[in-house]
Amino acid sequence: MIEPLHPRSRINRRNLLRSAGAAIALPLLTRTARAGDWPERPVTLVVPFAPGGTTDVLAHLLAEVLTRHYRQPFVIANKTGASGNIAAAFVASAPPDGYTFLIGTPGIHATNRLVYRSMDYDPVADFAPVILIARVPNLLSVTKALPVTSVAELIDYARQRPRQLVYGVSALGSTGHLSTELFKTMTGIEITPLPFKGSAPMLRDLADGRVHLTIDNLPASKPLVEAGEIRALAFTTAKRWEPMRQLPTIAESGLPGYETASWFTIGAPRATPPEIVTSLNATVAAYLGSASGAAQLRRIGAEPNGGSPEDMRRHVLAEIVRWEKVAKTAGIVPL
Rank of each mutant, 00 (worst) to 15 (best):
E303L: 12
W241D: 14
A318L: 05
H109G: 04
F264I: 04
D126L: 00
P304V: 04
I266M: 14
N12Y: 13
R210Q: 15
K197V: 03
M119N: 03
I103D: 01
T80K: 08
E190W: 13
R231K: 15
G209E: 12
V326L: 07
I24F: 11
E252T: 14
G301W: 07
L114D: 10
P334W: 01
V326Q: 06
V136N: 11
A291M: 11
Y116K: 04
V148A: 12
R41E: 13
G107Q: 01
Y157I: 01
A152G: 09
P48C: 01
S9Q: 08
W241C: 08
T30Q: 11
T329I: 12
D37E: 09
A88L: 01
P256C: 09
G104N: 10
A128V: 02
V46F: 00
A110S: 07
Y121C: 00
A134R: 01
I103Q: 00
P269K: 05
P223H: 14
P123I: 04
A92Q: 02
Q72L: 06
S19Y: 05
K144D: 12
A220D: 08
Q72R: 15
R210I: 09
L26S: 11
G209N: 12
I86M: 06
E3M: 07
F264T: 02
A128L: 09
V211A: 11
N15Y: 08
P274A: 15
A200M: 13
G104M: 09
I320T: 06
L335P: 06
F101N: 01
K222G: 04
R299C: 07
R31H: 14
T55M: 00
L224T: 12
L297W: 09
I76K: 05
L165D: 01
W241M: 07
P223W: 14
T67S: 15
R10W: 07
I155M: 10
Q160F: 07
P269R: 14
L224W: 12
S179C: 02
A171T: 00
S174Q: 02
E242G: 13
E40S: 13
P195V: 04
F127M: 08
G84N: 03
V166L: 09
P48V: 01
L139V: 15
I300L: 09
E252R: 08
R163E: 14
A251N: 04
R117F: 03
G306K: 11
P48H: 03
W263P: 00
E319L: 04
I276R: 14
P7I: 02
T54H: 05
